[in-house]
């Protein structure tokens, strides 16, 4: 199993009490799978994704990626593990504002000292149809182009798992389609995608759709009820 989540829980302090963002979630995702988790804002989707991504330590439970629990690694080992196994795509793109497209896509090379980083970045840029925008900064790109750059960056190290947090949240339908198609392609090519979104159209692209309510994963039927409600 590529990704295993076992009884993951996370709560946050909020005012005098605590909010249970994720409560005992267990999930298995294998290669070639595209899983979407749907739920309203603040339901714990992003928290779940950050925990899977090795960025937010769970209060209890375990995350295993190819059998390795990243939270049992040291900070530096976890950072290296992240760069080797995981790719991130965010709604806000989080591109480095002063780097051009080529450099933004090649940013992960900073973590790995990968040789031929620019060649790899050019390859991805061409793949996403951005070769004309090679030396443009994020401020000179459209939102769709920005998300494609972010996606290219996430794929730089050929990760096993792609974590996407509302990847189409700021995009028009045309660009959403391009991004979702890319995610599907990634899954088909042996990777796995875990996407959180509240966008109905986006989640329909996934092979498996789960809902999240009060920190719990719910079944597809329950999820549908949730979406309708």
């Amino acid at each position: 199993m590529l990704l295993e989540l076992e009884q993951l829980s996370k709560s946050f302090k909020s005012g005098p009490g605590r909010v249970q963002a994720v409560d005992g979630i267990s999930l298995n995702v294998d290669t070639n799978e595209f899983v979407a988790i749907q739920g309203p804002s603040g339901c714990g989707k992003s928290t779940l994704l950050l925990m899977v991504g090795g960025l937010l330590s769970p209060d209890s439970g375990e995350v295993r990626i190819e059998g390795t629990n990243p939270y049992r690694l040291s900070n530096d080992q976890r950072a290296r593990f992240r760069s080797q196994h995981l790719g991130f795509v965010f709604q806000q793109f989080h591109l480095v504002p002063y780097l051009n497209v080529l450099d933004n896509v090649a940013t992960p090379a900073l973590a790995s000292n990968r040789t031929h980083a620019r060649e790899r970045a050019r390859e991805l840029i061409t793949q996403f149809g951005l070769e004309q925008r090679l030396h443009h900064t994020p401020a000179q790109l459209s939102t769709g182009e920005k998300q494609r750059v972010a996606l290219a960056r996430a794929l730089f190290h050929q990760p096993k798992i792609l974590l996407a947090d509302e990847p189409t949240g700021n995009l028009d339908s045309e660009n959403s389609e391009i991004v979702l198609k890319a995610l599907c392609q990634f899954a088909e090519n042996g990777g796995c995608v875990l996407m959180v979104s509240h966008d109905d159209q986006a989640v329909q692209t996934a092979q498996r759709v789960l809902g999240i309510r009060d920190g719990h994963l719910v079944t597809p039927d329950e999820s549908e009820t949730l979406v309708n409600s």
Binding site: A79, F90, V96, A111
Partner: peptide, 16 residues
């Protein structure tokens, strides 16, 4: 701050 967050997410160590 955001730049630091994304750099850490893509694998940069805190020492970097």
């Amino acid at each position: 701050a955001t730049e630091i967050g994304i750099l850490r997410a893509i694998g940069l160590r805190s020492s970097q």
